Computed example of a mutant assay.
Amino acid sequence: MKPKVYITRKIPNEIVSKIEAVCEVRMWQEEEKPVPREVLEKEIADVDGLFCLLTESIDQALLDRAHALKVISNMAVGYNNIDVEAAKKRGIRVTNTPGVLTETTADLTFALLMSTARRLVESTEYLRSGKWETWSPLQLAGQDIYGATLGIIGMGRIGEALARRAKGFNMNILYYNRSRKPVVEKELGLQYTEMDELLQEADFVCIMTPYTPETNNLIGERELSLMKNTSILINTARGGIVNEDALYHALKNGVIWAAGLDVFEKEPVPLDHPLLTLPNVVTLPHIGSASIKTRMKMAELAAENLLAAIRNETPKHLVV
């Protein structure tokens, strides 16, 4: 009798076929809409493996309904959607998909930095609305990127990849991390600073740290007040790291110049969210890893992790 697996979103057929070669597969058939909670509660009852996305809250109440579950394979680098400790207590393995999305997410982060600094979205809307009637000296003038100071909070794989891109723009790069990385400092010419100093000195502040209880609201009113009034905040990590109310007031009152956001505390972000009303905010729907090649690699790795745990082997990327 084959082990049973539930997949919480429609994924490419070639990935499903690999899992079906070993397991009996049931799958939510929507590509754009998450599986409803009540459906997931029913489906998880008898499965050996769960293939899920960040959109699913795998909490203690849900795990209480899982009577045969061996593995939760998260198709993401982060896993703050999963109660890891509750899974560990039940002997359930949790896996993720790091590494494969590093370069793609760094691409998106630097693209967001550039589009925010040079007001590309605002300029597109300006043109399409018929406002472009002439040229003027400071019309839609933005901030320079080449030679500016970049501050990176969180120097993991993606932070390092972002720093490599910034070197091509001759940027002075500061970083703050829980621990120093002397090898990376030497390789990329980075300068380690405490976070307050980074906030005070950087023209661009990029959030690259994982979301944890310690990083919840890491950037709030006090931290934003330390930044220059010409500086730009970029967040492609997790929404809860930045206090959104404090960010809104800082942007509206000119405490900082602009922000580029790929993530929000609540996703999808409500259309009446105050940050969406500001012209100096570039907003994206959490597309950091959204290239075709990378998303396929993530799905493949999530499937490999799942199948390894089903076979009682050690998955390539094991969280617990």
Rank of each mutant, 00 (worst) to 15 (best):
V22S: 01
E30V: 00
P34M: 10
P34Y: 09
V35K: 05
P36I: 00
E38D: 14
E43M: 14
D46K: 11
D48G: 08
D48T: 07
F51Q: 11
L54K: 10
D59V: 11
M75D: 10
N80A: 08
N81K: 12
R90H: 03
V94E: 08
G99W: 02
L101A: 15
A106K: 06
D107H: 00
L113K: 01
T116A: 05
R119C: 02
L120W: 09
Y126L: 02
S136E: 12
S136D: 11
G142S: 03
D144E: 14
G151A: 04
G154D: 06
A161I: 04
G168H: 01
I173F: 01
K181F: 07
P182A: 13
G189R: 05
T193E: 06
E197L: 09
Q200K: 14
F204N: 12
F204A: 10
P210Q: 09
P213E: 10
E221S: 09
E221M: 06
E221N: 07
E223R: 03
E223I: 03
T236S: 12
A237E: 04
R238Y: 12
R238P: 03
G240K: 15
I241F: 08
N243W: 08
A259N: 02
L261G: 12
V263T: 05
V269K: 02
L271K: 12
L276M: 11
G288C: 09
R295P: 06
K297D: 15
L301H: 09
A308F: 07
A309H: 07
E313S: 09
E313Q: 14
L318W: 08
V319N: 08
